[in-house]
Nucleic acid binder design. Structure first.
Length: 477
RNA sequence: CGGGGUGUAGCGCAGACAGGUAGCGCACCGCGUUUGGGACGCGGGGGUCGGCGGUUCGAGUCCGCCCACCCCGACCA
């Protein structure tokens, strides 16, 4: 078992991340370049993410469906920007059943095209609208450089695809789902985010407008944690998704798509983790509490286990793991579960059996101040409160970190300093050429143009031309 | 695709310069003692040395070619 310490975050953030993912048994490298295996502990986390999102999707009227992995390659060519954006990273199947295929098939990099094909078939009337479908699946993109969870050749996600009668409805859906993502991120994952619109150069290939939630990782780099696209009528025209309106005239639909992937697990790791390992938000943690029994002999073992049985009977509302592994010391288990980010540790030993107590240790507060002894009586409510408190605390901590590292530089010199170790919230002229120059000079890109920024005007941080919108620039993942 | 690095037991590495039939730590198995912050003793099991070819009586080691993976850049959820 892992005994060496992790590299520290300050020493080598990237290496800390890689080692942690492997050691915490979230994932492992697969035999194919850029691919990974998501192990049971990591998948359990994903399942909780899925549940939290799925419930929100259903509450906003969506239903799940399954679409095929393979798509005729000609579909990709129907939308100009889409084909340009995705062609370089497609995996293509050319042989099936030992025969060369008449038309090559692509392994879906995303499903807009096949969705478009099917929606064109299904939608005839304004009465058919809106269509609100979500897919839980995996997609393949032949990325040049991969990293566990953040960018792998194949990744799991959900992709929502909707069709609407009017532009307003399409826009409303786009923003509604952005809001769902933000709500999920902040309230379930305790990850504070900035909601905003993507610049034209950063938007999804084929979208009219893209929106994202952006999160700040522990090294201050930005991560796009979820996206929602207003596709306008681009795909509707490319795939002929039309309906007859009340006046009996043909209209093109307005469509949207939105996605959140297993990348979000990377965000949780990099936002909350510390040098001891993961710190998982209680609402998503596979195990919210782990019980570590302590005993010296068979008599003590029996008493401790009996006490644990009676305690667990009252904890059915909480996801509790009993670590009854033999042959390892409590100290080993303490470290092991800290590495794996379980929010609360419950220690139960002979002293606790005698006094009717347990020791609780919260993961987000290392050492003595996070540890206290409480009565076995009423443990469930104490634990529930504690988990809520941890959820709030780690959110507040991440929020404070984001605020402390988001700056408003006054000029471009200061801007260059800022984006070395933080985010820059600045006036931007809106010109793609200016944006490209900034990227080239600083490696910082526009993460988003925040939605809730104050209006007004100023001068562009780089070219100093008049500017009417503010943008967040940062180095991204 | 450019730059860097690494492939030897499940993991981390030594052995390579000076060729002679593979070793250390952790993990794993057994027994015993331990157990409130990463326990210890004794005994064990496990390796086509990334692949192919060459040199040689003999290659982990020397030569050639290839492959894979990781890290840093350009592309991206």
């Amino acid at each position: 078992m892992a005994k060496e310490r992790l590299p520290s975050r300050s020493d080598n953030f990237s290496e800390w991340y890689n080692r942690l993912v492997l050691r915490a048994e979230l994932a492992d490298y697969a035999p194919v370049r850029g691919c990974m295996v998501i192990r049971p502990y990591g998948w359990a986390l994903w399942e909780n993410i899925q549940a939290a999102l799925d419930q929100r999707f259903k509450a906003t009227g969506h239903m799940n469906a399954a679409f095929p992995l393979l798509i005729p390659s000609s579909f990709m060519e129907r939308e100009r920007e889409h084909v340009e954006g995705f062609s370089p990273e497609l995996a293509v199947v050319t042989i099936g059943g030992g025969e060369e295929l008449e038309e090559p098939l692509i392994v879906r990099p995303t499903s807009e095209t096949i969705i478009g094909h099917m929606y064109a078939k299904w939608i005839k009337s304004y009465r058919d609208l809106p269509v609100l479908i979500n897919l839980w699946n995996s997609v393949v993109r032949w990325e040049m450089r991969t990293k566990l969870f953040l960018r792998t050749t194949e990744f799991y996600w959900q992709e929502g695809h909707t069709a609407h009668a009017t532009e307003e409805e399409g826009m409303a859906e786009t923003l509604r789902m952005l809001e769902v993502y933000a709500d999920f991120a902040e309230n379930e994952a305790a990850v504070p985010v900035v909601k905003g619109r993507k610049s034209d150069s950063e938007k999804f290939a084929g979208a009219k407008q893209s929106f994202s939630i952006e999160a700040m990782m522990g090294d201050t780099r930005a991560l796009q944690a979820g996206t929602s696209h207003n596709l306008g009528q681009n795909f509707a025209r490319a795939f002929n998704i039309r309906y007859l309106d009340q006046e009996n005239t043909q209209q093109y639909c307005w469509t949207t798509s939105w996605g959140l992937s297993t990348r979000f697990i990377g965000a949780i790791i990099m936002v909350h983790g510390d040098d001891q390992g993961l710190i998982l938000p209680p609402r998503l943690a596979p195990y919210q509490a782990v019980i570590v029994p302590i005993f010296k002999n068979e008599d003590e073992r029996r008493d401790v286990m009996e006490t644990i049985d009676s305690i667990r009977a009252n904890l059915s509302e909480i996801r509790v793991k009993l670590d009854d592994r033999e042959g390892m010391t409590p100290g080993y288990k303490f470290n092991d579960w800290e590495l794996r980010g379980v929010p609360v540790r419950i220690e139960i030993g002979p002293r606790d059996v005698a006094k009717g107590t347990v020791v609780l240790a919260r993961r987000d507060q290392p050492g003595r101040e996070g540890r206290r002894t409480v009565n076995q009586q009423g443990l469930a409510s104490v634990l529930t409160e504690l988990l809520d408190d941890i959820q709030t605390s780690i959110y507040q901590r991440a929020k404070a970190f984001l605020q402390a590292n988001k700056h408003e530089p006054k000029d471009f010199e200061e801007f260059k300093q800022v984006v070395e170790g933080g985010w820059a919230d600045v006036w931007w002229c809106g010109d793609a050429g200016c944006e490209a120059e900034i990227k080239q000079q600083t490696r910082a890109t526009i993460r988003c143009i925040p939605l809730d920024e104050h209006s007004g005007d100023g001068i562009c941080i780089h070219c100093e031309k008049p500017a009417t919108e503010r943008a967040i620039f940062a180095r991204g993942y």
